[in-house]
């Protein structure tokens, strides 16, 4: 395992990430995932680490408005991108994004661990504009697992916002 490691450790390099509209200059090694950069270096812990393998969706955030798994990409690959996390959804301070409010109104979570990923994913899905029905929502949200099984209320919440805004 150790044999392939370079003999001298590589120094971290200074990387500037634009997160929720604000520039964060961080010293990161190239192998730092975007998820770890958000949580451990920018100290934005709203984005969750679930499986760390792209299978659960808890780490979902928006890059230039598109939803991705932040655990399966390197921070160094995202200089110059607009990164939006659950902390940056509000248009104005202390006012929830309609999707956040809908999740509260519909009781769309139990433990809440998957919720930031669910909400970012749902917003990304509405940006994409391909969901028309509840069945579409279920299919296009399949990358977000809820271990508590709150799916019916999650679908209701998203459906609600979809009809309010589109």
């Amino acid at each position: 395992m150790i044999s392939n490691m370079p003999l001298t450790p590589l120094p971290p390099s200074s990387i500037t990430l634009t997160i929720n509209g604000k520039a964060h200059t961080l010293d990161l090694a190239p192998w730092t995932t975007l998820l770890d950069a958000l949580r451990e270096y920018a100290h934005l812990t709203g984005t969750k680490k679930g499986c760390d393998h792209g299978q659960c969706g808890a780490c979902t955030a928006l890059i230039d408005g598109k939803r991705i798994n932040t655990c399966l990409t390197l921070a160094i690959m995202h200089e110059g991108h607009q990164i939006t996390t659950i902390e940056g959804l509000e248009d104005e301070p202390d006012k929830l994004h309609p999707m956040q409010q809908a999740f509260i109104d519909h009781d769309a979570f139990q433990c809440g661990y998957c919720t930031p990923g669910q909400i970012c994913s749902a917003i990304g899905m509405l940006n994409e504009g391909h969901a028309k029905t509840e069945a579409d929502i279920r299919e296009l949200m399949s990358g977000n697992i809820c271990r508590c099984g709150a799916y019916p209320h999650i679908v209701d919440a998203i459906h609600d916002v979809m009809h309010q805004t589109h």
Partner: peptide, 9 residues
Amino acid sequence: GASAQLRNM
């Protein structure tokens, strides 16, 4: 194939 997030990446 995959999920919407993965297809975006």
